[in-house]
Design a binder for these strands. Structure first.
Lengths: 123, 123
DNA sequence: AATGATACATAAAACATTTAGGTATAAGTG
DNA sequence: CACTTATACCTAAATGTTTTATGTATCATT
């Protein structure tokens, strides 16, 4: 998978489950590849999920009882659709709220930081 | 160090350097323990840095040339103050901007997520 | 026929953080 | 005075996520 995100992938850490759960909360059912494309499109390429991270996450969420799967044949290929379970729906709620609170807290913490005017046209 | 954060520490991953750099951008010089207390106070206990994560991070930022140190004796104890170098100042700028952009992008991505009304009073 | 997109998957390596220690001084309390 | 808590630094093994690097296979386009 080709990559050219605008910022460090570092920040993405810990948000993968949240992203997946929230997309499935709006979309009823999605398959892995679809999720990567959806995220890429909606964020103008700024967030790009790697398959090496996504698939294990999907499997984990399924093992944890938050997702169920159904396989659908498309020609000779088999697509694996994921949907939220009831618990998964709650979890999506919790995770999204948690992220929103976290980013609010962080932005408040960073808020007092005023970029040095001498630097603000750099980088 | 005692811990009782209101949300998963997961999300904190990847933000530690940003926090440290931004605090030093506003405060001229700070020492490790002071940073933990400052963050705890400013976030009403919601973000609590662990020393096991903080000290290695400070050492890494110093090794990368973003911080300089000076040791100050307080009675028989030695306090280690950290300050931003010129590069550190730029880095603080970059990291804070990066986080702001990231949280904006994430919030847009999660924005279309509307909590199920049946669930919104739960958890 | 070859390339790129679609679509799944795993596994070793890299990395940051947690957990769990360790040391020592200073301050406050019963 | 003894004890506990707060201050203040530090390291290292274990954990857990993600990256990087593969692998397989179908379908569409040039």
């Amino acid at each position: 998978m080709y990559h050219c995100p605008m910022y460090s992938q570092e920040l993405l850490k810990g948000t993968l489950q949240t992203i997946v759960l929230s997309l499935l909360a709006e979309n009823e059912r999605m398959y892995g590849y679809e999720i990567t494309q959806h995220v890429k499109d909606k964020t103008a390429g700024e967030i790009q999920l790697t398959e090496g991270a996504l698939y294990p996450t999907l499997h984990k969420l399924e093992a944890d009882g938050f997702l169920t799967t159904e396989k659908v044949s498309i020609g000779k290929r088999v697509r694996k659709y994921y949907s939220l379970t009831e618990n998964g729906n709650k979890q999506a709620n919790d995770k999204v709220n948690e992220f929103r609170r976290f980013s609010e807290t962080m932005n408040e913490l960073l808020n007092s930081f005023n970029p040095n005017p001498e630097l603000q046209w750099q980088s």
